[in-house]
């Protein structure tokens, strides 16, 4: 009986905590966007830890601006825009720092895998399941702004005008950034001899 009471109490306490969390205005406003923000942060950083750090920094900045969040009609694009600013700031800080960031083990494995597949045989490249990893390694070589623009356009389905607004540049620049990023990546997906073998 006492155990049941104790279990009920624990259950109530947990429910109260969950209710408190979900009824908190910041959580209500921000929480639904976290998976989308993480996905975008991952596309820009290509690293899970960095992506989580980026979303965390955004959340830590936004928690003191709940009133401002409430007043924003289109919260999703606004949050993406603010997170992009943080991302660019971080990139600049990192670039200007004498500390060079070493690749994580996962990244290193990706690069090693890409080196294995980085031969002069496009067919072998294409047939290899490492194409995705090769692309990731190549994406890391591209400046982050064009890569982010490419993901926003190709994966998230943003228009050129929306990307221009997020990145604070003209539509023409967005267009050329996407074009440049695509051109670099297409070099990997050179399908040239792919069909020759099968014909």
């Amino acid at each position: 009986m006492a155990l049941n009471r104790a279990l009920t109490y624990i259950g109530d306490a947990q429910n109260n905590r969950i209710t408190k969390m979900t009824s908190d205005p910041f959580s209500l406003l921000f929480s639904p966007h976290i998976p989308m923000l993480y996905r975008m942060a991952y596309q820009w950083t290509l690293n899970g830890d960095d992506a989580e750090d980026l979303v965390q920094e955004l959340a830590s900045k936004m928690i003191n601006k709940v009133d401002q969040l409430k007043s924003i009609e289109q919260l999703r694009p606004w949050l993406v825009k603010v997170m992009y600013r943080i991302f660019v700031d971080r990139y600049r800080r990192r670039k200007n720092s004498p500390v060079v960031f070493e690749n994580n083990l996962d990244d290193q494995q990706i690069i090693n895998n890409s080196l294995i597949t980085d031969n002069h045989d496009p067919e072998a490249k294409l047939h290899s399941s490492n194409l995705k990893n090769t692309l990731i390694a190549e994406l890391k070589k591209i400046e982050p702004n064009p890569a982010a623009a490419l993901f926003l356009f190709e994966v998230e389905g943003y228009t050129l005008a929306e990307i221009a607004d997020i990145q604070g540049i003209s539509e023409g620049t967005v267009k050329s950034r996407i074009f440049r990023a695509k051109r670099n990546l297409k070099k990997i997906i050179s399908l040239g001899t792919f069909w020759d073998v099968r014909s």
Binding site: M21, Y38, R39, L46, E52, A59, S60, I136, E154, E156
Partner: peptide, 30 residues
């Protein structure tokens, strides 16, 4: 070529969301 690139970018750009990410982010922000 475009199809293959877009396909792979979508596959790269949709990572698995870490377990309890939302709770962690909100709790840390608080």
């Amino acid at each position: 070529q475009n199809h293959l690139l877009a396909d792979n970018l979508k596959s790269i750009g949709r990572p698995e969301i870490p377990v309890a990410l939302q709770q962690r982010i909100i709790a840390n922000a608080h």
